[in-house]
Nucleic acid binder design. Structure first.
Lengths: 192, 192
DNA sequence: AAGCATACGGAACTATAATTCCGTTTGTCA
DNA sequence: TGACAAACGGAATTATAGTTCCGTATGCTT
């Protein structure tokens, strides 16, 4: 048996360039208009026809999924860096949350995926989620061993809390401030 | 000048009955299918034509708005009862949150209104919100005076946190449990 | 530099769901 | 009980946004 039949020839140069443009256009469109931004708008910002968008991403969900995947990858990278840092573990963890929340705050795709409506999008990046949860768990375990984090919180609580935080991010209502919300969450995780 | 020109003759008996049926049908439809349930489905459950639904509520938003208003009114009533109870103020407050969160958990209209998508719906019940926030504030002030609640949380924080909680309610993802989320929030509000 | 697979553009198509319209029915009041 | 305003039903309309199609253009290979 010969190895992988994964014989996909590399993309043509224009296609490779366009794929990037589309992702960039999508980031802009979703950042500006939320996840309801239309595919036509994405195409316009990418200076490309809608057909081309669909050549690269079979559905809007797939496009959102790719953006989510990329953002989770960056969060995972942040987490790796945090694991290297040495310092008071709870503080390191809290800073990581602040940093990753900041990434989410500027990303309508993540918010969309986290807010129920986009459960399918979320699943497209399951592998990335699992990896992130694993690394986060390691950091949390340290803080718990050292007694600075509540012993009864689990890595699975974090996505739930972040999901709630994203809800605050999408609102502009008076009194809604995701940074404040995050600080309350962090305090909730701290050991008494 | 004669008093109010508010000369609206009472609804015809069938209209009054249908209005109730529609609200009931809407509660059922939204509970079963979420806020994306269609107007046709609402009509079907109410055993009424779509036209009749629109005779009573000019838009879907107006219908959702009325459901939200009614639910907030019930929450306000709960809060009034809580203000009468005498007991450890923080505990009374926490129980109130548990009770009202329970109401929200069974109400897709409230969840929809709280999750950004429905900001307009939310505004239709501004008066009810303001009243609820006011009463809640009184209860919180008591707990703060008595030293059982963090002195730096304000009544305006509660809708924000409840909004996040609603995000958890709409999810079925593993590890997502709104009761757990709520307990974490309650702990965050408790004085150290 | 010809040949061709790959990729592009964007008008047209489709699906979905809210909303309107109007002919018919039903309560209410004299 | 007859007349009429109020209310009803649901097929038809409209609006929006995702997706498809196909004629044209372009990069790559020989």
């Amino acid at each position: 048996m010969s190895p992988p039949l994964d014989t996909e020839r590399p993309l043509r140069s224009d296609a490779r360039r366009n794929r990037e443009r589309i992702l960039e256009g999508a980031r802009g469109a979703f950042a500006a208009l939320g996840a309801e931004a239309q595919m036509d708008e994405v195409a316009r910002r990418a200076s490309v026809g809608v057909g081309t968008v669909y050549r690269h991403f079979p559905t809007k969900e797939a496009l959102l999924g790719e953006l989510v995947r990329q953002k989770l990858t960056r969060m995972t990278a942040n987490t790796r860096v945090a694991l290297e840092r040495d310092g008071e573990p709870f503080g390191v963890f809290a800073d990581l949350l602040r940093e990753n929340a900041g990434l989410a705050a500027r990303d309508a795709a993540i918010q969309y995926a986290m807010l129920g409506a986009g459960e399918r999008v979320w699943e497209l990046a399951r592998a990335e989620q699992d990896e992130l949860r694993g690394l986060t768990g390691e950091l949390m375990a340290r803080a718990q061993r050292n007694g600075t984090m509540r012993p009864d919180v689990s890595p699975a609580d974090i996505p739930m809390l972040m999901c709630g935080l994203c809800a605050t991010m999408t609102h502009t209502a008076p009194g809604f401030d995701w940074r404040r919300h995050l600080e309350l969450i962090i305090d909730a995780l701290r050991a008494r």
